[in-house]
């Protein structure tokens, strides 16, 4: 067991040394940079209040506000300190963190963006699949259970001949199915859950009026009479406005991030030496931004 603890102990010691060194460095920097105060202004205060209210649905109390300001100050001095220490320079995690922070900023911009009604409507029209009510189906079924019949499919076909003449006819007794014989306002997903995907797929395509089949399910064969079918319809814009906005923002965010990265690359310029280019393949430098 002792060997198990050894590495931990070892690293605790290393950690302690590092921590000691860190604190010492830290102290020195505090002195060196004390002259430049970190400022919190009215804008910060307003922003803090807003964030708080959006989460808590009320204004922060005086105490709470004080706490928020404290936290913000801490964050700011820490960030300043990290910069002073040059932490971001040779540290992948810090570097990534900074990049991430910038990314958040870009994304926040998208989150705060307020599209015009026209923009939203245009987005809604361009992405119909995102904002629709799936079609619903009311139907009756007669079940032919292969467990109880020699040839359930043949029985179903024979019964279909007798039924087709009159859609009101319900004289044919099929076998009992636990789900019942009559279904109202069911969508494809629910049907698929009950009978299996193939059955659902086939039945949603049936035209109302007239017995059809046999349709195969996970349980056997069915004759199906669709009594009512509503098509998949777009949800009225007014009712899904919030969802459209959310989708718009998420699309906008992707778009903005991409544009921003392209801009950044243009701003700083990207140079890959020839061997790098060759190794990464044609168009590598430009493609990355497009992803």
């Amino acid at each position: 067991m002792t060997w198990l603890k050894e590495p931990l102990l070892h690293f605790a010691v290393v950690g302690a040394i590092l921590f000691g060194g860190y604190s010492w460095l830290n102290d020195r920097h505090v002195e060196a940079t004390a002259a430049e105060p970190v400022r919190i202004g009215e804008g910060d205060l307003r922003w803090l209040k807003q964030t708080w209210s959006s989460q808590w649905l009320r204004e922060p109390t005086a105490d709470e506000l004080k706490g928020l300001v404290d936290d913000l100050l801490n964050e700011k001095v820490m960030a300043r300190e990290a910069q002073e220490m040059g932490l971001e320079k040779d540290d992948t995690i810090i570097r990534r963190r900074l990049a991430q922070k910038l990314k958040f900023l870009v994304e926040d911009t998208a989150q705060l963006a307020e599209p015009t009604e026209a923009e939203l409507r245009q987005f809604y029209a361009a992405n119909p699949a995102k904002f629709e009510t799936p079609g619903k189906l009311s139907f009756r079924q007669v079940y032919f259970n292969p467990e109880h019949r020699r040839d359930a499919a043949a029985d179903a076909t024979a019964a279909l001949g007798a039924l087709s003449a009159n859609v009101e006819d319900d004289s044919i007794e099929g076998d009992r199915l636990l789900f019942g014989d009559s279904f109202a306002d069911t969508d494809e997903q629910a049907l698929s859950g009950m009978f299996g995907a193939d059955f659902a797929h086939e039945v949603v395509a049936l035209e109302p009026g007239g017995w059809r089949g046999p349709v195969k399910s996970g349980y056997g064969f069915h004759l199906v009479l669709v009594t009512q079918r509503t098509a998949t319809t777009p949800k009225p814009f007014e009712t899904v406005k919030d969802a459209v906005l959310a989708e718009w923002r998420s699309a906008k965010q992707t778009e903005l991030s991409r544009e921003y990265l392209v801009e950044l690359r243009n701003k700083y310029g990207v140079e890959l030496d020839d061997s790098t280019k060759a190794a990464l393949g044609p168009g590598a430098a430009t493609n990355v931004a497009a992803q």
Binding site: R95, R97, A99, K103
Partner: peptide, 14 residues
Amino acid sequence: APAELGCTPDHTEI
């Protein structure tokens, strides 16, 4: 969507 979670590292560079 790492940004949505607010917690996964960005790894553009590495």
